[in-house]
Design a protein around this nucleic acid. Sequence first.
DNA 1: CAATTAAAGATAAAATGAATCTATAATTAA
DNA 2: TTAATTATAGATTCATTTTATCTTTAATTG
Lengths: 137, 137
Amino acid sequence: MKFSKATNYALHSMVHLAMDNTNEAVGVDTLAQRQKLSPTYLSKILTKLSKAGLIESTPGVKGGYRLVRSPENCSFLDVIQATEGYESLLNCTMSHDGKWSQTCLIERTMSEVEDKMKEELASKTIAGILSQMPEKN
Amino acid sequence: MKFSKATNYALHSMVHLAMDNTNEAVGVDTLAQRQKLSPTYLSKILTKLSKAGLIESTPGVKGGYRLVRSPENCSFLDVIQATEGYESLLNCTMSHDGKWSQTCLIERTMSEVEDKMKEELASKTIAGILSQMPEKN
DNA sequence: CAATTAAAGATAAAATGAATCTATAATTAA
DNA sequence: TTAATTATAGATTCATTTTATCTTTAATTG
């Protein structure tokens, strides 16, 4: 019942990219330094975000990463699913006999909870974080 | 973003205990056989439920486990916290400078999501599972 | 006292998470 | 075209957590 550190790094990277209003690409070294991380490690996380279509990457001299969508359209759910994957909260592997339903009732109940959670995560956006930041003078 | 197998075992054990309407204690061997688990492993999980006050255990000849509360008062949240612990979904360890709030905004946002999730988990009970089971003739 | 049953401890195997290093491919600028 | 820059991918390592077993101990009943 915990998200990985990678997810936290990913969310922070998204915010950093969103804060960058120049439309130049930001290199992984810059992002890694700000979070005090090894660039290669963060790179793997950013690649996941890239494959999920949240950011785009350009190699080469003036390359780096850029947001693809507007911060309003980047939800926590998007980022979390990109890094954590799409497996469900609880996956019952037991065989249930007659007294239970065909599909495990516990699993089905957890699935309802998961749907609500996703709804909630979808309502939180990167833009929402930006809007809470103290004004920079 | 997944619950452990132990949590699934715990939830199933709770349901099994709730289904037992005789007020005799149920031994770990019985519960373990039904879930095809090693008794000693399940025992550790049941001990957590016991320490959390959800079930009680009596050693000795006619001993075993019993529910403490009624199934209506046993929520998924209770069981999950007993097995998974009480750590929060996301714990940001980074240091945030001026542009961020003192407490990480991402962490704070995730905390809101977590609260909603807990609310949802608290609304799901063991009794709710029993009520969905097909009538036994 | 003997049988039964849960609890605790030690340990181990397996899976996952976190991270680094090296090599490769792509792009830009000179 | 060449050199510098930058992302990607692969192999590998280390640490942590999960899952599980075995053994011993403690408590309870008859």
